[in-house]
Design a protein around this nucleic acid. Structure first.
Lengths: 110, 110
DNA sequence: ATAGCCTACAACCAAATGGTTGTAGATCAG
DNA sequence: CTGATCTACAACCATTTGGTTGTAGGCTAT
């Protein structure tokens, strides 16, 4: 009935952050190399402010960090967020496999 | 500049589906056992229609399937969706590790 | 010091989300 | 057949999301 409310807001933000192609692309890029916000903005057809917002969403989801360097803001990938998302999906996978085993056991009993 | 990204609507739907605690709970439950839509609805404080919508979101994201049985609609976990999401996160993880190796190599050169 | 970049942030808008209530069609139990 | 149950779906509402433009402030380079 009551669903784990506490840390769920973090997971909501995490998966919400992944639910946009532009944001997934940003995560990919900043994992490989360093980009300023404007460096990222140059990659897409949308406005600078729009990209800025996408980066903010990723930052709130712990998928990215920003660090001021001179007048630029450098965006870097944050492994924590990715790991957390992966752990959750791994949990689901584990549950699935348990179910598969249980079914196999039932069939084996016959 | 050009956003090569096949703006994968399927992935958008997938992660969007995970971005809600109720929906994550539904996925967990239907992986373990069988539930009708109303059986699921009984678990939460929200209305039947709201749960129905959540199930629809999960179905469109390929995380769940529905099958009519008498007057009920049985909801089952669909492994495909989960696998697809996991594969994407695994890709990101692989990119991260490549980066880590590359950095280690650069350090080793000195 | 001035001009030009980089960023932050506010205000606004359209569309999507997450919820509600209400209505109606199937199906099952008695 | 009648009534209860399960589902589907429409209409509505408030909030969030993803985008825009505009304004202002902090650095940098000349």
């Amino acid at each position: 009935m009551v669903v784990d409310q506490r840390s769920d807001a973090g997971l909501d933000r995490l998966f919400q952050a992944f639910a946009d192609a532009t944001r997934r692309d940003i995560v990919r890029r900043v994992t490989v190399g360093e980009y300023s916000v404007s460096g990222l903005a140059a990659l897409y057809t949308m406005s600078f402010a729009a990209v800025q917002k996408h980066v903010a969403v990723l930052e709130r989801a712990s998928l990215v960090t920003k660090e001021k360097r001179g007048r630029e803001q450098i965006v870097r990938a944050n492994h924590e967020g990715l790991q957390r998302a992966r752990r959750l999906l791994d949990e689901y996978e584990a549950i699935w496999r348990q179910r598969a085993e249980r079914i196999a056991d039932i069939l084996a009993e016959n």
